[in-house]
Structure formats: C-alpha cells, structure tokens
Design a protein around this nucleic acid. Structure first.
Lengths: 218, 218
DNA sequence: TCAAAAGTGTTCCAAATACACCCATGA
DNA sequence: TCATGGGTGTATTTGGAACACTTTTGA
C-alpha cells in the first residue's frame, strides 16, 4: 500500500497570527516530541494519508480553535534533512490569520500568544518559519486587502489603522489613511457607532467584500 | 531506517523560465511514468533520502543544463492526494530563471521551450504549476531586480526593456523606462557597444550587483 | 470642565506619464 | 540614400506626504 520510495514524514506547522495590544502575536504551544518535550513550538502535526496539508493544518488548529473558518495560506516548505533530529520530516508551513476577538478563546487550551518581536528560542526551525510568516504578511498587506482577516466584523477606522501600524511597524497619518481608504471604497459605513468610551463615539465600518483582492493600499 | 509514519513520495517539479522571441517560455519534457508516458510535463523527479528539495531540483536540471548556477526559488508545494494516480506524491515545485543565451543549449536534450501563453495540456497538475510560476515572476519583477537572472552578462537597454514587456505583457515608454533605470543606478554602462546590426550601435550594460534586492521598479 | 479620541481639507512636492525628433550604422 | 533601431528632454498630471484644529462623549 505504501510506496516503497516513500521515506519522508509529512507534517505541517502553522503560524497563527493576530494583532492585539499594539503587537503582532503568534500562537505557541509546547512540543510533545521526545527530543523537544515541553519546549515552545508552533502548533503543528503530522499529515494523514488521504489528507492535503492545508486540511491537516485546519484540523490541527481545529483542536485549539473549535472552528476552521480562518484565513489559511501556504507559506513555505521546510525540508532540510536535519531539521528534525528524529528523522526526515518535511513540513509544509501555513499562515493562519485570526481576529483578536476569536484569538482570545485559544488561551485556555494551553497555547499562548507571544509578540513576534520577543520570541523565545523555539524548537526545530520554527523561529525561521515565524520570521518568514511575518515577512509574508507585511508584504501582503501593502498590495492586498488581506488585513480583513485580522479584523472583527465591525470595527472603527482607528482600529483598522492600528492594525496596519502594528504590522507595518510604523505610524501612518490619520487623514491620509482615511482619504486613501475612502478612495478605495473597501469599507461600508455602518449606521452605528462604538459607544461607551470616554470620548466621542467612532463610526463602525465593515468590509464590503471578504475575498482577497490585489490593490495598492499603502 | 525509514520512519514507519512515512507514506508520501517526495518529488520536485521545476518551472524553468526564459524570455525569447517576444515570449516568456517554459521548459517541457516528456513524462517517463507509466500513467503519462510521453506526455508533456515539467522537468522533475524524486527527491533523494538525504537531499533537500532545492538540491534535487538543481540536480535534476543539471542533467539538462550541465550547470546549476541559475536562480532557483521555491514556488509552492502541491500535495493533493489524487494529483498522481500512481500514489501519494508530494511535489515541492521550484522556479528557475535562465538567460536565453544559456537556455539555447537545452534544446538538444529532448526538452523544448514553449510559450507560456500557448501550452498543451500537461500531465499531473503541471499547467497549474506554470500558471503560479508566471504569476510569481510577474509579481516579483515589479518590486525586485530579479530580472537580472534572465539577462545575459551584457545587454542593451532595449533588450532589458523587451524582457520587462514580455513578462508584464504590456508596452513601456522607452524614455521613461531609461529615466527610471538611471535613477535606480542598478546598471553599469560598459565602454562597449553592440555592433554589427543594421542600425546605430547600442551601448552595452551589465548589472552592478547580482543579488536580489527589493526596490520599486515599475 | 477636562481628558481623550473622532473627524475633517489644503498645500506642497515627487514621481509617473505623455509625447517626437535627430543620430549612427549596415545594407 | 534608406531603413532600422538608438538615444534624448520637457510639460503635465497624479498621487503621496505633511500638517492642526474643532467636535463629541464619559468621567
């Protein structure tokens, strides 16, 4: 049944990213494997026989998230023969983006969020995976509307701008930001405001379409 | 020796791209496998036990190119369980860029060049791989200097512009193109010209640095 | 009334675009 | 001398960047 030419174990590791508290955060768990037991790692696991790697990624995260509707994108395949001392494990890494609102639930599962700027040393090549994931995200938010995957259904313009600033790592001009977004017509202004803060209530917005489109945002 | 959890055969397929005759071309060979014998496919093959997939890609193309110094970049991993009727074969696909001057040699090896705009139906998911490879290349030439991998050591500005136009699929303004390149300072003007044409000889240029850099070209 | 964030326009500058003619060579 | 591609500059438009004050609310 198994092809005699098969020697590699197929795995997936997922860089789950979210924005919160002025930081881009990644989800870390503890390794189960003999060699790295208890060390911090990305969530991941083995791919099953009749499963695509993206299905595996969603299945594995499903244990933690109780839901698999989040944006998932293949990142890169890590295949150095020595990346796992236990044997030849080829990992197809994924990025998953989730809004903070949903991210919060995860905390009870033993996994936890860490700022991508202040990471411990992770097992395997997982620091490298995260570095690449962040680079991909930073690149993509400048020429796509991918950021909607990190936003809740309704949000204020300031919240949106905050997330851009967190990911880009620089401040944006409020007026220019709003002018640009207005011209792109990506958002729908809701007939509602975010009340209850000790300041003027902000209008709430939602994305007109929730599909990835290419466009020059910044 | 082989991990009992290993079930997937690890392979690589390579989209080798070059510009010539006003077309972006990809290298095709004939399939050897039982199911698709003789049908057109991308060059590719199985990865060996102690080999990275990029090494495998270069090794496999080495048979055809007698050289492995060309630009190689991981593209995407194709892992549908049904992509190969012979079994579970996971292919880590690569892009390779080669200047036409070097591409010519390949023709004697049974492989041949085909315009990416006029491809036959290929075996496996190879049409999809090429589509993605072209998309990646088109994207990257707008924000990197990656195109140097498709140019010979010395070239004229018109030849460079031609390659941009081929890949982007649109005409560029000659004066604006030269102005922009000049301001980027990417090129070195050689004290030599391309003689022997039935027109005014063009200055020859070479790239100052042959390493990928990010910069807004177009 | 105060603190805190929301919301809003104009000016300036840099870069992209559009555009046409003379030059040097080989045939 | 003719056909062919090489080489060059300016004017206009467009978009990005800089910048500060008034408004609305809860405490």
């Amino acid at each position: 049944m198994i092809d005699p030419r098969a020697f590699a174990v197929l795995a997936t590791d997922i860089a789950v990213l979210t924005c919160y508290g002025a930081e881009l955060k990644v989800l870390l768990t503890k390794a189960h494997s003999k060699n790295f037991k208890g060390e911090p790692v990305l969530p991941g696991g083995l791919v099953e026989f009749s499963e695509r790697t993206d299905e595996a990624a969603k299945r594995i995260l499903g244990d933690v998230l109780k839901s698999t509707v989040f944006y998932t994108e293949q990142l890169y395949t890590f295949d150095d023969p020595d990346r796992d001392p236990a044997g030849r494990v080829v990992s197809v890494a994924y990025i998953m983006l989730i809004p903070w609102k949903d991210a919060v639930r995860v905390i009870k599962s033993g996994a936890s969020w860490h700022s991508v700027k202040d990471l411990p040393r992770l097992a395997y090549d997982h620091n490298e995976i995260i570095k690449l994931a962040v680079k991909r995200l930073v690149g993509k938010i400048t020429y796509t509307n991918i950021i909607f995957n990190l936003m809740p259904e309704e949000f204020t313009l300031t919240e949106l701008q905050d997330n851009y600033e967190i990911i880009l790592g620089r401040k944006l001009d409020k007026r220019n930001f709003r002018k640009k977004l207005n011209s792109l017509n990506l958002l729908r202004k809701l007939p509602r405001r975010k009340e209850g803060e000790a300041n003027r209530p902000a209008h709430l917005f939602s994305f007109r379409q929730k599909s990835i489109r290419e466009l020059a945002i910044l």
